[in-house]
Design a protein around this nucleic acid. Sequence first.
DNA 1: CCGAATCCAGACCGATACTG
DNA 2: CAGTATCGGTCTGGATTCGG
Lengths: 120, 120
Amino acid sequence: MALIEYDPYVHDCPSRRLLDRIGDRWTVLLIGTLEDGPMRFSQLSRRVDGISQKMLTQTLRSLEADGLVVRTAYPEIPPRVEYELTDLGRSLLAPLQALVTWASEHMAEVQDSRDRSQAA
Amino acid sequence: MALIEYDPYVHDCPSRRLLDRIGDRWTVLLIGTLEDGPMRFSQLSRRVDGISQKMLTQTLRSLEADGLVVRTAYPEIPPRVEYELTDLGRSLLAPLQALVTWASEHMAEVQDSRDRSQAA
DNA sequence: CCGAATCCAGACCGATACTG
DNA sequence: CAGTATCGGTCTGGATTCGG
């Protein structure tokens, strides 16, 4: 199978939509963090370094809408909300892992190349 | 190996930098197109639907800086320039393929989920 | 504790016009 | 053919403030 589908809607093919989804700054980090099991909002906030409350909320909502994460609110005082990967969400871990492995093996080369072209 | 590295630089880990790279609208489409072999600027322009000249140039320059693509200019009239994946660039095809496969298998579910939550 | 809502600076990117 | 330069709208996302 070719990597890209050459049709008039290539800019709207599944690959393109997936990349729209995971291409933002936080989605993959959140999925990777939730790999360890259900987690509360405040836990995620602490474990995902640098994320703002707004983006955490926003990204979780998107993941929920996409069916990758389930949100469970417990009607307690104080409120407790847990987020957990769905089966669909977990099925995305393997392909992401392939990318992460590539990154850990090759990003040094990429960085070297960047540095060299920066010098020029 | 965990998907995400939990250190103070999690927002700057290799995975993060890779995603910064391939997360934009065109990078993956270009790499996928160049899978078929060396290609000229105008060919790329035609095959990657919807890309503007500006973004094509810009994305190719980034890919070149990262060592994923080589640019070869032939001093002819009219000018001819060819772009080709490096070994490093080609090594990225497999992990990307894993993502594309996931997308083709599961994006319908994601879309359904989106539609349902949109209705609500 | 878990968010929602607002404001706003800056990045992104398409369109257009021009060049060797 | 293969770009470069510039303009301007859109979108992102951080900071802040407020609510249940």
